[in-house]
Nucleic acid binder design. Structure first.
Lengths: 336, 336
DNA sequence: ATGAAAGCGCTAACAA
DNA sequence: TTGTTAGCGCTTTCAT
């Protein structure tokens, strides 16, 4: 990497490095003519300022970290698009780090972020995360952290979330309305607050409709598709009471549920109706098309990014919370 | 950001900064005892080396850039997983940049990469990319570039690709075998080499089976789903000759094709059979399940990452090319 | 309007 | 074995 440095420009124009630097940053101290000359030479020599030198000097990296469980997931990939749209406009870089739903990866990543590599962090915690010390040590070093979607309640940090309770409620009420009486809830993890909030909504809807809520109807899924498949199959095979509705709290479970129903010769929506928290565009062409709770992934990404930028600028956003609602889109899987 | 620096450690232990630096890097020059003391203090004070300072000093960032059209796409998100798995193991960071299929974004990104921000670049070109000057100026600055999947033929750079020609051939031959005689090819873009190679395979398969290939059966899709939908619908409505098979060369078109067939009351596979280049896990639960050409996305990511690391190390990989084959998975959409 | 010089945190050649 | 020193490229006082 043979860089064109400010020094090279200075030598070429018989000016000092500081003059060049100021000219490039359009300082009022520099004459219009000099600015022209500098800019022109910079263009012809294809000068690119070394970002690491400025970072070192200025103590800011113009880079943010995005910590997510997975990128092969329509919610997160859309959220990343939203984040990126804001950050690009503000000249920030986005360092995406994946935890693969593992707490130790998450810890390692946040740890590394204490080095000054990033000016702020957007994160959605892993399904395993119970303790927030790694997050707190980051904020204690004045690296602002904003949660989006998956929050760790224990940590006091600004957050962009969706209305998980209401969505869980809406999904369940919708199934009840369509005649379901024995509704199964498939959670992502026992510890994840979004999963629990959705579940609380589910419970509340059952209660409001005078349906009893048995723990047997609640399944905590794992990160292993095969295991989830067995669990879903098992509960669908139960005879008395036979499940007639499913609320799946995460996109990954869509395939599992459809496949299980298919293999068990259960017809959706006749034998069992399904609502899934999902952002899959493809929901419309499933057979039957899938009723979804669709989250405002892109908007959440945008909002989280904007909030983080404020925090980086030094605005006090402690305790800021923004709720962007999800939408229930009824389709074939709950028809009839 | 209040950093613990090497200087702080030095003061605390009454040692010089260079001793600390060497101790941290486990230099043979430093006594075991001193190393212990340094490491211990570093741990208690939670010292994190400033990556930008080392980058500036060492002229290497231990960061690579990944330039892709989109992240909300199962091929690219899986490929990113593959890349990340290798890079994490080697202690590299991954800066993901999205072109959104636009050439000027791609240019801007590669331009910025001339600043020394990254040690190397992995890229899949945008559908608009015709000219490779931006890529060449990067390699001329000794920033190695490795293509994966979407190559710009014009640029001589190492590449990890899949067998696009053979896959296009296999998809088409499969349809012919299943009785199709009027097969439509849906391309991603006229300029994209992968799309063209797949198309060449399609043409060859037709020729080998003594079917004529009319330009009317070849549709170049755009980045606008609505427009694609109209185009697909239009060709499916054609009466004579009526299309009875579709090869869709990109995942995004799956929804379009299924939706169009659905809306036109065309039954898959009875009226028209479909093969799609796709990595969607969900292919199995579409109705009918989708016959796919499944690309080795994760493996391609891994291979590309390894190759880039070699290039960064200075190994000569000019002209290296690795082909990882895709697999045709026959499912319901081509049954019967 | 321009320049000299210090320093961001780290590394490495050289000295002691 | 440890320390001194000179930068990496850039920004920013503080002169001039």
């Amino acid at each position: 990497m043979k860089q064109v440095t400010i020094r090279a420009l200075a030598r070429e124009l018989n000016l000092s490095v500081s003059t060049i630097s100021k000219a490039l940053r359009d300082s009022y101290e520099i004459s219009a003519e000099t600015k022209q000359r500098v800019l022109a030479l910079a263009a012809t020599l294809n000068y690119k300022p070394n970002p690491y030198a400025s970072s070192l000097r200025g103590k800011k990296s113009r880079t943010i970290g995005v910590v997510v469980p997975e990128v092969a997931d329509s919610f997160f990939s859309l959220a990343i698009n939203g984040i990126e749209s804001v950050m690009k406009a503000m000249g920030y870089h986005v360092l995406i780090c994946l935890t693969h739903e593992q707490f130790d990866n998450e810890q390692l990543i946040l740890n590394e972020f204490q080095s000054g590599r990033v000016d702020g962090v957007l994160m959605s915690v892993s399904r395993e995360t119970l303790n927030g010390d790694h997050i707190r040590s980051l904020t204690e070093q004045d690296v602002p952290v904003v949660f989006f979607d998956r929050v760790l309640e224990e940590v006091q940090a600004p957050r962009i979330v969706t209305n998980d309770f209401e969505s869980g409620y809406a999904a369940t009420a919708h199934l009840i309305e369509k005649g379901c009486r024995e509704i199964v809830y498939l959670g992502i993890s026992k510890s994840l607050s979004i999963s629990n909030r959705r579940m609380e909504g589910y419970r509340q809807a059952l209660a409001d409709h005078r349906l009893k809520c048995t723990e047997n109807n609640i399944v905590a899924c794992t990160n292993d598709p095969a295991e989830n498949y067995r669990a879903v199959k098992k509960i669908l095979l139960r005879k008395a009471p036979k499940p007639d509705g499913i609320v799946a709290s995460v996109e990954k479970l869509t395939t599992t549920v459809y496949q299980a129903c298919n293999d068990l010769r259960l017809q959706i929506p006749r034998d069992v109706k399904v609502v899934c928290f999902s952002n899959l565009e493809i929901a419309t062409i499933l057979h039957p098309s899938l009723t979804t709770i669709t989250q405002p992934a892109f908007e959440m990404g945008r909002a989280a990014a904007s909030l983080l930028l404020k925090a980086i600028k030094g605005t006090d956003v402690k305790g800021a919370e923004m709720v962007i609602p999800s939408v229930l889109i009824p389709r074939g899987s709950t028809a009839g």
